[in-house]
């Protein structure tokens, strides 16, 4: 057993240095040089202010914007400092109640599934065209909008 202790400790130290410091720092350096926009979180900058990330959904409530899906993050929706899904099970009364209320809030008898359920991350930046049709704000859509499989709710 004693003959195992030296290689265990020395190799753990050496492999830690290579895979835990050298590797991530080298990737960081390469990424910052070659792909700085992506490596820093795909920030969207408008007149010098960061207005969001291309990839992260945001909560909108004014009618001129696309509204995102409900979000399970706390304490506020679309908290990108603490991602979270609801994790509630399919037979949970909490789920049925919450979704039922969301359907009622759309003012229509049925709603698209993405419009009334929370995403896995709580930061889902996309909505489906179906969801737009169900939304009361859909009438305010710009006329030039081309049909796509999904629409962004992040500033692009």
């Amino acid at each position: 057993m004693l003959t195992q202790i030296r290689p265990a400790i020395v190799l753990f130290g050496l492999l830690s240095a290579v895979t835990g410091l050298l590797y991530p720092l080298a990737i960081t350096g390469a990424a910052q040089v070659a792909f700085p926009a992506q490596a820093n979180g795909s920030r969207v900058i408008d007149e010098g202010t960061i207005i969001g990330s291309d990839l992260i959904g945001q909560n909108f409530s004014q009618p001129q914007y696309f509204w995102p899906r409900p979000s399970a993050t706390g304490p506020d929706a679309y908290n990108a400092a603490a991602s979270s899904g609801s994790n509630v099970g399919p037979t949970g009364a909490a789920l049925i109640e919450r979704v039922g209320e969301a359907v009622t809030a759309t003012g229509k008898p049925t709603a698209s599934a993405d419009a009334v359920t929370t995403s896995g991350s709580g930061l889902d930046p996309h909505i489906t065209p179906k969801m737009l049709q169900h939304r009361s704000s859909a009438s305010r859509l710009p006329a030039a909008l081309t049909p796509r499989s999904s629409y962004p709710c992040s500033p692009m």
Partner: peptide, 20 residues
Amino acid sequence: LLTAVGVDPMLGNMEGKEVR
């Protein structure tokens, strides 16, 4: 259970899933 409260089942079960 969600279809019963007015969810269109076309997209399937979207709770906990991402659109992309």
